[in-house]
Design a protein around this nucleic acid. Sequence first.
DNA 1: CTAGATGCAAACAGTTTGCGTCACT
DNA 2: AGTGACGCAAACTGTTTGCATCTAG
Lengths: 155, 155
Amino acid sequence: MDRTADFRALCRRHGLAATHQRQLIYETLMSLTGHPSPEMVYERVRRKIPSISLATVYKNLHTFVERGVLREVSLHHGSLRVDANHEPHHHAVCMKCKSIVDIQEEALTPIRLRGAPPAGFQVERFAVDVLGICAACAARSHRPRKTASPFDHQS
Amino acid sequence: MDRTADFRALCRRHGLAATHQRQLIYETLMSLTGHPSPEMVYERVRRKIPSISLATVYKNLHTFVERGVLREVSLHHGSLRVDANHEPHHHAVCMKCKSIVDIQEEALTPIRLRGAPPAGFQVERFAVDVLGICAACAARSHRPRKTASPFDHQS
DNA sequence: CTAGATGCAAACAGTTTGCGTCACT
DNA sequence: AGTGACGCAAACTGTTTGCATCTAG
């Protein structure tokens, strides 16, 4: 199979063992247009490899992200975060410590759709995350200390 | 107290009972510049009301969101979502069913920072979520059927 | 042959729920 | 007085981990 050859090449390139389950997980991911949850991937792969475990799916998703084969759709801050700012605004999010800082709407060039949105999609608003590394984390990575905590440098 | 009067007015406006714990939760939220986790709010409020329970914090956060006093910083899709698309792109996210569809970068006007980012913040990239209601959910709300599932209409 | 991958089950973190009691209005 | 809020503990969901076994290279 062609597919298999491609996948083996991909694995070789990223220093990964070309496992049957890994291949199915990867191909399932690629075959779906959306961004399926781990559960959903698990369910699909299970139709081909009934003995696969959900933990294997999780381990592989992380492996893929670590090795740069995939990226996370959006960083999850790990818990419910709430916003008391009623002005339209956006967020600067630190990719290391996940701290979130508000950014005024005017700090960004105005955003508009150029073409049509996906068929039938009713646009409500644009939410922009400016992703990067915050001052505290940048400093930390020069003279590394303890593990970063999201709240070391919150008011 | 002034604060207390303001808070009572806010509650009256939103049809909520002006509870001591509710007030402390609210004021804690407002006093922090960042977007603290429920745990963090709990820890802070506990210094003033040691008997408060974490469940109360959660209940109030949700109440505040329902009543429009607060909004969620960003919708959490509830599970790890992964992206195999290596082209720069953005996402259309349905606020009802949380499905995610890729949008080409060129479909949006280019985004740039106008002023300086927050002090010392090293910008890496912009992630835009176009928030709205997808076609399937819009249709569903006309002739409502069963509960929406994020995957009813994924490939 | 050996490092790394898998599968299982148990552990975790964050969040929600049910329910009896209590407190705003 | 009555509705809604609180506090507690137990339940749940999504995710991670430890470990014995297996397999790709």
